[in-house]
Amino acid sequence: MKVVVCVKQIPDPADPGALDPETRTLKRDVKLILDESDSYGVEMGLQLVDNAGGGEVTLVSMAPNNEQSGLRTALAMGAASATLISDTELIGSDALTTAKVLAAAIKDQEPDLVIAGSESSDGYTGTVPEMIAAVLDLPSVTAAKSIEVGGDAIQVQRQTDAGYDVVDCPLPAVISVTAGVVEPRYPSFKGIMAAKSKPLDEKSSADLGFAADAVGWAGSGQEIVDVAEAPQREAGEVIEDDGEAHLKIVEFLENLKVI
């Protein structure tokens, strides 16, 4: 079974840096790491390949500055190889352009299954996996909490507010995985050492057939017109207990319509 996992390399959320005031996008001139929300996809891919008794997980990532450290982490977890699409033309690409570029790299690999995190932990557009599916004309199942493979199809438990849907889907397909649904393994020492010698194929957008004006700022149909600070949370209401506090709390909850 051949599984492609899309991974994003992002600024460390513990030290996220700043927004560029001109482009209103996150500055990415710092060291990038594997997005934790993609580590679930990597883990799920590795488990599916293990259960299938053969095959491999390969990675596809798009990043500025030829960043590789996040990919090395995923390779150390057990992925077999990686493709990194990186060049300066790609800077400023929106979600759809990103999806087109990733789809072009994925198509070359002819996978049985494509896995992506539901949304990245820096951009949070939450649309790239479905756009990849649309570009590749493949079925898309979102918010998977588990995937079971049976022949040429998969059965996916799809997280919903009320519980989960059970969805049957033919392969190949693009599945987005919710964070927290599996326990991502720690890279082992052997994995870390092996990761150094695993193939990491670097490509430019031109290598994948994109003209310079089809990607990056030039190719994107969207513009970020404004960013604003998240409003401060308002102070909560303090209820002093004069013996009647429980009634006020009940009333408060009733007004919220939660009881």
Partner: peptide, 14 residues
Amino acid sequence: TEDEVMLRDTVRRY
């Protein structure tokens, strides 16, 4: 080295 940092960070995270 990069490998040493990666191993150190992995054990630290564990």
